[in-house]
Structures are given as structure tokens and as C-alpha cells.
Design a binder for these strands. Structure first.
Lengths: 337, 337
DNA sequence: TTGAAAGCGCTAACAA
DNA sequence: TTGTTAGCGCTTTCAA
């Protein structure tokens, strides 16, 4: 069994309460004799004492941990964000608990959310859209004022941060247009928040837009790669191909590009490619991927500020905060051949 | 405040102990009346009761969570493994708590390990090499018989799983040799476990081997990408380039390939590339990366079996378990031009 | 300057 | 069939 504060107390010959005060740095406040303090500290170190997480959490009513709910930790969009979040959260003395839903189903999303709650996290940052009006979880979060922030989806009545994809998308379409592209394509999951700005921009700049939804049913999440690859194969065989492809994510773009490569279609010479999310992983592609970025660092900072504010009792605004996207120009768009 | 078992007890008009029994499925064993059980269950659901994590952990002495200690969650090797681990661990009713060290320093590695302990995890799977003979952590793990498994590094006296890189590396070198390659290169971190088998195989197959260590000092971990890219730039300018490059990881290979692309050097036409770890991310490169795989799924399964065995009180073997690597042939190796 | 004690929410053994 | 009780390890207040 691990060693407890009581063990130390016995060794030093003081009460457990005294040990607790000293170990929490309240020795001075509690007016414990210097000598006693030193002895306690020494014994604690010698025995490699570490306070019981559970004991502490129980009495404090806090676990000092934040839940991070996302669809897939393999997706660079999420693992890069998780990485950032971990760093920041730890800087604040908290831990990050990851939970991935694999986007099986909305039901699974909610279950994962419940899991996180069961895990005793003090707040949740969610990239899913499951916690929405009408679900018991939504009611609970509101009733308990549970610290919560949703990123990427507007949830009425709850704090959330959404990306305004218009500016970045418009820039991207303009770039394509300037490079002579007249036929664009969207390849990816059905995502109105990304497709609408694209359709708008295409119309505005007088270029056509074809849409190829990657077929992904619930439970198929593991096969994104395969789907994107197949989509690329089909795309390559199209009689008259669009010359620039917008994908719903960098993650998908990687596989799509690989699929094109297999078909002998080269980027950016034969097809230009534009991703979404502005991940570092996109930047490490061959060629580096031009992408519609949403400034993850800023969004995350905002999100964390919002959860921590709630944890500290300051309520967060519930009007969606919109962060404008912008184009991250790299090397996957070129003059149409 | 969240709702407690006592709240339910009051509402139903029974004792808190009764509520606890029923909610833990011990209603029958405790011979609680059917009607009472139903009432309790109903109220619990209505109030969306969730047992306090801390309370439960305290009395059980377990948090039902496993720590996953790795260097970098952006590295596909780790995030793919973490993904697998999460799934399996959750299947067993546990949670996975991630902790990344960024490989700053050994000291940081140990601190992160301590963090995980402080977090109250019931066991740790570590990809770091910090917990080694001589450290207090090592002593503690042994003294407390703390459930622990190290992957990738042999730790005397502690359960560990290492990869025997010889078979896969030999296959890879043979493949290169058969394709006409006479000059190989190793690009990556100094990693004897990978370099030695490579040197052996090169000698055995009569091909030369140059070594280019990517300069990475502690704290520079964030710049792997930049380093790999620069290494590629330097490599591209070499007067007489080796024709096949072995990297220390798929992660690094991605950036190295991108760097080569920028210099106009094409894979596999001008340079063949072989990665390490056999990640899905490598398979999504253009071209798909041939890689020395170590069967992460099997290793992880083994590792989890070992931690869970220890958690359940069965001690695990402390002789290193070696898993042979094998070559994952994809499309980044071709005939030398 | 320190000890004693209450109580956080829960489980489990034992009474009633 | 159900209630009571004793802790789990900790923080914190109040006494001594």
C-alpha cells in the first residue's frame, strides 16, 4: 500500500493534521515550529510520499482535471490540439483526460461524454456535437452549470467557439481563381460549415463546384483512410476532372493525396489541393499542403480560458464566439496546366 | 453540487447503504425488495446520478485508470498506439490517462512519471527510458510492486517489451540490395537499437552505410519537423548521395520526404526511403512508406495484459519480452536509377 | 505550537 | 428486507 500522511505523522510523532498543513505549504499559517516542519518534509521526501489523489479529490470536490472530447486522436487536427491543450492545462496544475468517440454515432458521443463525467473531470472541452438541446446531458450541464465549452459547433445556451470559415475559404478560392482554376471540387464529409462558405465563394468568383461526399456511415470511422483513398481513385478516373480539390480536413487530404499518387496524378502539377485545419501534418506533406486554418492555438486558449473561468465560478458567455479562418498558403496550389 | 447517493436515499426513503447496493448491482445479493430496487433505479436515472469518482476511488483504493507515458502525441507511432490502448483499456472498464514528456530531458520524463502517479493511476505503460535502475522511481515501482510495463527499452528487473529490430531491418536491407542499392544512409536520432541491426545487415549484404544524426538537444523536441526537413535539404545537396535512406521513425520520414520534395528530389525515383514503426500515417504518404514494423497491436496487447495482470495481483515476468520486427513493404523503395 | 475531530461520498460487513 | 457503521486519506476548523 502507498504511504499516507498518517504514516508520516506516526514517524515524526505529530498528528496527521499537522503533516497535512506542512505538506500543503500552510506550515507558516498554521504556526508550526520550523523544526517540526523540516522533520516532516524530510520524512515525506525520504518515504517518497505522494498525497492520495482520491482523498484529496474527495475533500476538495475537485480532481483538477479537464476532459478533452474529440472524434479521433489520430487526426492531426485533434492530436495537435490535444498536445497544445495538455501543455497549457498542465501549466495550470491540471491534467488532461482524453476521450475519443470515433464518431461512431451521436449516442456514442454522449456515452463518451458521460464517461468523462464519471471520470470526475472538473470541466470538458468538446469537439463533438452530441451535447445539444434536448439531450439529458445538455440539461444537466446547464442545471449544474458544469464547466463546458464546445468547439466547432454552435450549441444554443452553452459556451462555444465556432470557426467562421468564410474568410479563409474566400482567400483560397480567390487563389485558385487567380491560378486559372475554373472547376473546383469538395471532397469530404458533409459539413455545411465548410461547404456553404465554399459554395458562396465559388459563386462569387465565378467558378464551378462539384461535391463528392465521402461515404462514411457510423462505425466506419476507422476507415477514413480507405474512403479517402477510394475517393481519390474515383476522382482520378473522372473524364473531366476539376482542377482543384478542397477537402474537409487535412487528415483526409493526406490520404486523398496518397490515393492520387497511386493513380499517377501529381500534386500540384495536375491537381491542386486545399485542406482544412492548417495542421502541422499538412505542412509535412509532399508537397506541403495549403490549408484553411482556424488558428487552433488561439481557439484553444480561448476555450481553456472559458472552462477555467467557469471552474472558478465566473460564468462564461453563451453567445457563440466566432474565430475567422484564414488561408495558410503552402505549396499544393499551382497554375492550372 | 452534483447529486449523491444520499440524495437518492432521502428521496426514496431508504438508507444510503441500500442505494449503494442497488446501484452496484448487488440488489439481489443484499436481498433488497424488487419494488425498492426499481424505485431507486428510477430516481437515480431521473436525477442523472453518477457516483462520485473520488468517493469510489477512495474506498476502493483504485481509480480504474492506466497511465500512458510517451514522448509526443503528435507522433503517429504514439497516437496510433494510444488510440489502440484507449479502446482496449476502455473495453476493460478503465480509462487511459495520457502524459507526454516531449522528451525534453530525462528529468522531465521522471517528473511526468510522478505526475501520473500523483494522478492516481493504477498502472503505467511507459515508452520512455527514464525509469531505470538508480532512480527513486525505479526503487519505488519495485518496492510497491507498482503495475508497470516499459515498451521499447529494456529495464532490468522490471517488466518490459522490446522490439528485436534485426529481422525487419535485414529484410529491408535485402530488399534494397536486390533493387540495386549499394549505398544506404541512416537519418535520425541516435538509437542503437535501430542502428546496430542496420549496420549488421549492411555489412552482411555488402552495402555501405552512412549515418546522419539529426541534431536534437533536449528541449528541442518541438522542432523535429524542422530538423528532419533541414537534414533532407543537406542530404539533397550531398555530392554523392546514398540511394536509400533509413529513418529512425515514420514520423521523421514524413518531414524528411517533404524536405526532399522541396529540393526537387523525388521518392522513390531518386531516393528510396524506409521508415520505422509501420504507422498508418506512413501508409498515407505519397508514396506509401515502406517501413520496419514492430506490430504495435500485438505489443500493446501484451503490455496491457502485463499491467492488468499486475493490477490483479499476478506478478509479471521481468525478463524482457522481445517482439521481432518485420518489413512492411509499401511503395517507397524502387530500383536504383 | 499542535492535536482533535468533522466530514467529503462511497463500499461492505454486520445488525436488526 | 433494510439500516447502521466503520473506515478509505485528506483538508480545515476549532480547541487546547
Amino acid at each position: 500500500m502507498a504511504i499516507t500522511a498518517t504514516d508520516i505523522a506516526k514517524r515524526v510523532g505529530v498528528s496527521q493534521g499537522t503533516v497535512s498543513s506542512v505538506l500543503n505549504g500552510n506550515g507558516a499559517k498554521a504556526r508550526i515550529a520550523q523544526a517540526t516542519q523540516e522533520k516532516i518534509l524530510a520524512v515525506a521526501k525520504e518515504l517518497r510520499y505522494r498525497p492520495s489523489f482520491a482523498g484529496r479529490a474527495l475533500v476538495r470536490g475537485r480532481t483538477r482535471s479537464i476532459g478533452f472530447l474529440c472524434g479521433d486522436i489520430r487526426n492531426p487536427h485533434f492530436n495537435e490540439l490535444a498536445d497544445l491543450a495538455m501543455e497549457e492545462v498542465e501549466r495550470r496544475g491540471f491534467h488532461l483526460v482524453l476521450a475519443v468517440t470515433k464518431w461512431h454515432t451521436a449516442k456514442n458521443d454522449l456515452e463518451t461524454f458521460d464517461n468523462l463525467l464519471a471520470r470526475g473531470v472538473d470541466g470538458i472541452i468538446s469537439f463533438g456535437s452530441a451535447v445539444r438541446k434536448g439531450t439529458p446531458q445538455y440539461a444537466q450541464v446547464r442545471a449544474e452549470q458544469f464547466p463546458f465549452v464546445c468547439i466547432g459547433h454552435a450549441v444554443a445556451g452553452l459556451p462555444c467557439i465556432i470557426s467562421d470559415n468564410h474568410p479563409g475559404t474566400d482567400e483560397a478560392v480567390r487563389l485558385c481563381q487567380a491560378n486559372g482554376h475554373r472547376r473546383l471540387a469538395y471532397v469530404g464529409l458533409p459539413e455545411p460549415a465548410k461547404e456553404r462558405p465554399l459554395a458562396d465563394a465559388a459563386a462569387r468568383h465565378g467558378v464551378s463546384l462539384d461535391t463528392y461526399h465521402v461515404p462514411m456511415r457510423p462505425g466506419q470511422w476507422a476507415q477514413v483512410s480507405a474512403c479517402a483513398r477510394e475517393a481519390a481513385h474515383r476522382f482520378a478516373k473522372l473524364p473531366e476532372r476539376p482542377t482543384a480539390v478542397f477537402t474537409s480536413s487535412d487528415h483526409l487530404a493526406v490520404d486523398f493525396a496518397s490515393g492520387l499518387w497511386e493513380m499517377g496524378v501529381r500534386i500540384p502539377d495536375e491537381v491542386s489541393l486545399i485542406g482544412h485545419d492548417g495542421t502541422a501534418a499538412g505542412g509535412a506533406m509532399s508537397p506541403p499542403l495549403t490549408s484553411i486554418d482556424f488558428d487552433g492555438a488561439q481557439v484553444l486558449q480561448l476555450a481553456l480560458d472559458m472552462v477555467f473561468a467557469q471552474i472558478e465560478g465566473r460564468p462564461a458567455a453563451v453567445e457563440p464566439v466566432a474565430v475567422p479562418s484564414r488561408l495558410l498558403v503552402r505549396k499544393s496550389v499551382s497554375l492550372v496546366s
